[in-house]
Write a protein that binds this DNA or RNA. Structure first.
Lengths: 249, 249
DNA sequence: TCCGGCATAAGTGTCGACATTATTAGCTGC
DNA sequence: GCAGCTAATAATGTCGACACTTATGCCGGA
């Protein structure tokens, strides 16, 4: 963590973080840029669970005072990426398997709702644009391109949220999604996960096209459940990979 | 708003706000106390939608500097109680019917999930304690005691969340609940709402006792839907009652 | 060699001040 | 009397400082 931060959003994630960090926060304010940088560092794994986030160092890094840094850290705490205990140094949040299970349970229920909403009031054009997202997904799957598939999947989920037209739902799902980014990327790299996920998404798209709300909801729920199962199965490996700092050398 | 604040939590809401404002925030920190006071003022209607929340006045009121006030306002913004636009005075959040619909849609789905979780892994003792909550609810209903019913209902929902054992779910539901406190109290005062709600809750309890997950989920979903319908029907009246500040004299 | 207690260093929460930006009041012209 | 502009007032975002708390490293004793 010696390199100096570029406070300019570049990657595809910028939009994701922007939604979650509050719609106002996009790029302009200092707090937003700091939160964005730290948040991305966490999601991308440059900062690992348990790492200290002391506001003095960070303020030096960003050449600002501690006030905006503190506010940024509080934002990220609300998103579950950072843990703040009074009078102690903030640190990158640690995962427990229990929390992960809870989050995936929630995501399952919320995506089911999303599917119902989509079938209920998305236009045919909307479904068509979702199909286009799926094409990208599918081609990445055929190339066995995990990174490509991952980002295509993010885009697919975004497109689904657009069709829901429920701002509150979007905010919550985005927040949960953000917290599990690392896990999701990891789980896709497990053997045969990618094919299975792709197949499920194809089934889901078919259900959307057929306007079968119950089936779409059930499929979406199942997609999330399966992802959870994959993560549970690989939890030990994962814990070492993402590396809770305390267990690292 | 001329009376000086008592920064000591007294009412039954204290626990509710505490959960939502972050578990650490309970009572101790200055930020927490300020957020709690402002939050309660909003929920209880002493501060009305659109009211200015300028940090100078508030810091005078709480005899603190603006820093903790700002942090408290940011907390409340995340909970949807306050709107903050850069370089503009924060104000009490305005409702739109669209947002209310979205929130109730979400609550419906989440309570359905909660019911499934409860049936899935609550002990018989847990169900029994839920029955005791229901007794309070029922007796308030028989007395036509809207306030009593309202708070009994809050307690009932709390008890349900306890049984779910899903911290993430609880946090989200509590947050959504907080935002709609005023609406829910109002909707219960509509004619025949109270009886209907009570009846629904009894049916729900029966389903819990029968361990019928699908029925419980459907009933809980329906309870929320009905509340929404009641609110939609009375929206005009409600808007005047709660009073978006701009339309008030 | 390792453990517990103490002094020092580092970090947090809060404060009051400042430059910058919004809002308001007053004034001009129609 | 009212719209449009300008000056003055007020509020914001950020800063650096301070008191107090927590972490760090050092020391003697087993």
């Amino acid at each position: 963590m010696d390199n100096y931060p570029e406070l300019v959003p570049t990657s595809e994630e910028s939009s994701l973080l922007a939604t979650v960090l509050g719609d106002r926060a996009t790029g302009s304010s200092l707090v937003a840029r700091i939160a964005d940088w730290i948040g991305r560092a966490i999601v991308e794994g440059r900062l690992r669970p348990g790492d200290d986030l002391n506001s003095v160092d960070l303020s030096k890094r960003f050449q600002s005072s501690r006030t905006p840094v503190r506010e940024a850290l509080m934002l990220l705490e609300r998103e579950g990426l950072v843990e703040i205990t009074p009078r102690r140094r903030p640190r990158v949040a640690l995962f427990t398997l229990k929390e992960v299970r809870e989050i995936y349970q929630l995501r399952a229920a919320l995506y089911a709702l999303a599917s119902e909403l989509i079938v209920g009031h998305a236009s045919d054009d909307g479904i068509a644009s979702l199909w286009r997202c799926y094409e990208t997904l599918d081609s990445a799957a055929e190339r066995d391109d995990v990174d490509g598939y991952f980002w295509a999947n993010v885009a697919f989920r975004d497109a689904e949220m657009d069709l829901c037209e429920n701002t509150q739902l979007r905010r919550i799902i985005d927040s949960l999604r953000l917290r599990t980014m690392q896990l999701r990327h990891f789980s896709l790299s497990l053997p045969r996960r990618l094919e299975r996920s792709n197949l499920d998404h194809r089934r889901l798209m078919q259900a959307y096209s057929d306007r079968d709300a119950a089936l779409a909801a059930a499929l979406n729920r199942s997609i999330v459940s399966e992802a959870l199962h994959a993560i549970e199965a690989a939890w030990g490996q994962l814990e070492r990979g993402i590396g809770h700092q305390e267990t690292a050398p």
